[in-house]
Each structure stands twice: as C-alpha cells, then as structure tokens.
Write a protein that binds this DNA or RNA. Structure first.
Lengths: 324, 324
DNA sequence: GTGAAAGCGCTAACAT
DNA sequence: ATGTTAGCGCTTTCAC
C-alpha cells in the first residue's frame, strides 16, 4: 500500500502539499497539482482513513444499536439509516442488543473506543446510564427518552387510541388485546391508549401480555382464542403478533373480519402481503430511520438543530382484517 | 479523554509499561501493575482503538455487503454474521449494494480505506474485478464464485431438482415456474435444476422470469395465474415470490394445495407463519452466515483452512402449499 | 505556493 | 522488569 510519503517522493513535492491536493485545503499551483494527481494515479494511492480518523477525531461512522435485525421492523429502519448515512458519507456499524442491558453497554464501549461519531439506539430502557458521559451524540429511535436524549418517535398512545376507536366504530362488542412486553415503553403506551379510549366508551378489554416475536405470539394468540371465544375485536402490540393471531384464528376456522377483527401496529411490509392482509396502525418506518440519522449527523457535526425531539405521524391503514 | 500518556504520568511508569499491562504482552511486576490499573480506573481511561488499528493494521471489523437488508432473507444472515463476528471480537459494517456494481465498488473502496479485516459479500456478479487486488480476504455468501473466491453456498441446482421431484411425485400435471432474475447465478441454477428434472420425466414447465421482491412478484404471479389457469404446480425462485403467488391465488379463489401446489426456496421465517404456510426448499440461513463469517475470520487471521469452499445442505420442508 | 516538523495515541524493538 | 524512542499515515501550524 502506497502512503502519502510515497506520493510525495514520486512527485517531488512535500507530503504537506500532497495532503493539500487531497483535501483541497488550500491553494496549490495547478502544475504541481497535476504532478501530484499523476503520482496518485500511477501509484494507485488510497489515503488511509484510519490515520485520518486518528488525527481528526472523526471516523465518519455511526453505531446502530437495535434489539434484533431479524425482527421485521428493524430491517426497514436499518435500510433507512444506512441509506441516509451513506448519503452523507458515513458508514454504519450494526449491533444487535437483544434488549440486553449488558450487551448494549459492551457495544457502546466498543463503539466509543473506536471513535464512532454517534449512536443511534433503540434501547429497552427508558433511562439508562449506559448513555451517561459519552463524548458523542446519541439519538433514540422509536423510544421516547424523555428530555434526556434526543429522539425520533411516534405517538404510541394516540396509536392505541386510534386502534380502539376504529374497532369500536366498526361495531366491536367484545374487546381484547395482546400487548407487547410492558417493560417496553412503546408497548405500554399503545396499550394505555387502547384502554383509555375504551374506558371512555364504558368498555373494557381482556389483556394478554405478549412479546414482539413470532414464536411466543403463536402461543399467546392460541390461548386468547381458546379461552375467550366470544372476543370479536383484538388490538395487538405489533404486526408480528397480528400475523400470529391471524394464523391461529384461521386454524380455528374463524372468519376474518366477520368473526374477528384485528388491528396491528407498525405497518411492516409483510402485513400487506399475507391473506387476509393485516389492518394496522402504521408508523413511517423508513422516515423514522431517516430522520433519526439526519438528526444524529447534524448533532455530530454540531449543526444547529431546532428540534431534538421529533414526533412522526401515524395513521390507520385499513386492510382485510377490519370491516372499516 | 485520557490517553496512555496520562496514565503513564499518573502512575509514574512509562507508557510502554502501561501498554504492557493493557495487553498482557509481557511480565509486569504485580505492584506496578496494580498502580497502573488503579490509574486507569481513576482516570477512567479507555484505550483508543483507532490508534491501535493504525499501528497494528488490524481493525477488528469486517464489511458485510448484501443487496438489501429489507429483503427478508438477509436479516437472518446479518444476524448470524453479527453474532459470530461479535463472538470473535469483531464489529460488522452493514452495506446495501442493491446489486449495483458501482455501489458495491464504492463500498469496497471505502471499507478498504478504513482497513476492515475482511469482506463478506453477496454479490450480483459471479466474477467481478471489484474484488481484484484487495489486500484483505473476501468470502462470497450464497453465491458460488467459482474457484476465484472462497465461498459458502448451497447447491441451488439440486434444490431446483428437489422441488421438481416433489411436485411431480405429488401428482402435478401442469408445471410452471416463476424464477428469480437470470442474472443471478443462484436463480438460474434453481431454475436449471427444476427444468432438468422435469425433462427427464418428459415434462415441461411454463417459465416466467421474476424478481426477488414482493411488489414485482405480485404482478408476475397474477399474470401467470390469469394466463394459465390450467397450471397446478408452481416452483418459485424464492419464498417472497411464493408468498406473492399465494396471495394472488387466494384472490382468485384457488384452493391450495388442491388446485395449486407451490414450493418456494429459502425457508425464511415468515413462510411458516402465513396461511397457508409455504412449503419450501430450505437453506440453513443462519448457519450460512455463521460459517461464512468463521471462514472469513480464519482467513483474516491467517489460520490454516482446509476448505475455502463450503457447500451447506438444503432440505424440503413440507408445509401447507403441497400435498406431500 | 510550498516545505519542515510536530503530533494524533498507540505498540514494539531495543536498551538498560 | 521497565524505560526510551521510533514509527503507523495522516493533518496542520508555522516558516519561508
């Protein structure tokens, strides 16, 4: 590998000058510039980004810490993050935390030692001191972090209410919910919104606490259906649970949406491709990732940001598991 | 940020000694070691991994270049890669190439300049000079690269044959295929295996060339069904096409598998969760990613590897879109 | 407009 | 067992 020193010798100028033409950092006579460019070409010289990072303390890379890339919500986020990062010349390091505090901490430490320029995190814990004392910006993704950390999120409470209203207005009589795990603030908020709306209508809903995961959801969905055959309207904590519920409902010969209405949450692509397609409260997943990345990079580059807390809109997408 | 120099001063020993305790690289008297450790703690010193990388020419990071993380096959791969890399102390940089040669090249150049220790690539092109002259190992994932590049893959040709045999033995009469794009060697091989088997049985199959993508598949699937209502057995290039075909078939009131049998390829998780669940030729997706990563890291660490070309087994998974 | 030299934070000879 | 020092490849004052 040729170094800047090789280029310097080959072209007969100093390394400083080579650096100047490399970075356009100050005027260089056009004839010497030409010589340098020529040398670079002939030696097939590529600047060593690590050396540059060491000096500049800027790596043009960010860390993306999510619970699990195999969970279908996150690939869409990751794609947005990567696209956006790339657009601004940044690379992204992918980290799966499994919602494990220790694993998250290990990653943060490693990323920090590698001088990434910022962290994008979907963390399990609302307030964690995993993020204390870092010398780089952190943006929380899909988790409202209160005032402590900049974040990009959706109003999960309103989403829950919207699901309840929809089910109610569609003529639902017996309501149920399979929520996400309550230790996730997002799941809790969705649930709270759902129940609050029903309460105003003097209705209640059976509630099962689930997980954001297919395997577990199959079990809970089956249980709900078996224990409560009278239920006709279910709100589920995310689309994966919804897909599991559809499967179990069909296995039991229920007609959807006539016997059973279902509303999911997230709007992952696959929800629209199954039969029946899953009605859902849709988050702008790609834009969530995109805006979070933009915010993070603005922060990393010390640009002025007028909003460090961005709430993105949700909306109800009617597909085939609801009547209206 | 404290540096090794700060620790050295604080503890009254040389930087070399500090480095020694940091890396356990040679014996240090236990009392001085204690002093150093104490200083490290009090100063909250963290070694700068970038500086180390510059010197050692080893970054403990690898690049993962795939077409698109939103394609459901790849999150499972990426998860395996990340798990395995992490297990060996490596980080992974995620890159989406969209199967675009130029984009792939840009990534390779950037990763190379950042001195990643190796590249894991699912490339579109079988033989590309994008990989020529790199000073780091490359492992091809799910793409047989001939002898040029180490690779981890499955026997797609056999998979295609297996699909054909299954459909045939289940009593299929009129066969069809929606293949993946022919410029992908994997798609072509699956298709070739499928047709070769049928030919031996003196059967033919209608063939539509598709894409490994939901949106496009919906269109092709609809077309196939409308233009050939007599078809009763379809092999599709991957599970996504299969899911699209199921959707379109149900839309048209076809009974699966009685009127129409479908076999997919890949074995992505969602295929088992839809109704009807998709029978498929399953690849060991996680293990593919795991073995590829292991191979790459062995290569990066110049360990002796007896096999630079690893073929993983496939198998038929009977679910609800086939009769047997 | 260009060059010399210091230094980013670390490791590894080479001394002692 | 420990210290001194020369880099790794780059950028950036500070001279000229």
């Amino acid at each position: 590998m040729a170094t800047i020193r090789d280029v310097s010798k080959y072209s007969g100028v100093s390394v400083a000058t080579v650096s100047r033409v490399l970075n356009n950092s100050s005027k260089v006579k056009s004839t010497t510039k030409k010589k340098v460019l020529q040398a670079i070409k002939e030696l097939n010289y590529k600047p060593n980004a690590v050396a540059k990072t060491l000096f500049k303390k800027q790596s043009y890379s960010i860390g993306l810490i999510i619970p699990d890339i195999s969970n279908p919500f996150f690939p869409e986020v990751a794609r947005a993050v990567e696209d956006t990062a790339r657009h601004y010349g940044y690379r992204v390091i992918l980290c799966n935390s499994d919602g494990n505090r220790e694993k998250e901490k290990d990653y943060i430490e490693a990323l920090s030692q590698n001088h990434v320029d910022g962290l994008l995190v979907t963390s399990i814990s609302e307030n964690s001191d995993n993020f204390k004392g870092l010398h780089m910006p952190v943006v929380a993704l899909d988790r409202s972090k209160g005032k402590e950390i900049p974040c990009v999120y959706v109003d999960n409470y309103e989403g829950g209410k919207l699901a309840a209203r929809t089910l109610f207005e569609n003529g639902g009589k017996v309501f149920a919910e399979i929520s996400g795990p309550y230790n996730l603030i997002t799941a809790k908020e969705r649930s709270r919104g759902f129940h609050d709306f029903l309460k105003k209508k003097e209705k209640t809903a059976l509630t099962y606490e689930g997980e954001f995961d297919f395997k577990h959801s199959i079990v809970v969905a089956g249980k709900l259906l078996d224990e409560n055959p009278e239920v006709d309207s279910v709100f589920v904590g995310n689309d994966q649970i919804g897909i599991a519920l559809i499967k179990e409902a069909m296995l039991r010969g229920l007609r959807i949406p006539n016997d059973l209405q279902i509303i999911g949450f997230d709007g992952i692509e696959i929800g629209g491709l199954i039969t029946p397609s899953l009605s859902t409260i849709q988050q702008p997943i790609y834009d969530l990732g995109k805006e979070a990345t933009k915010l993070l990079l603005d922060l990393a580059n010390k640009k002025h940001v007028e909003q460090t807390s961005i709430c993105m809109p949700i909306n109800y997408v009617k597909r085939s598991t609801t009547t209206g």
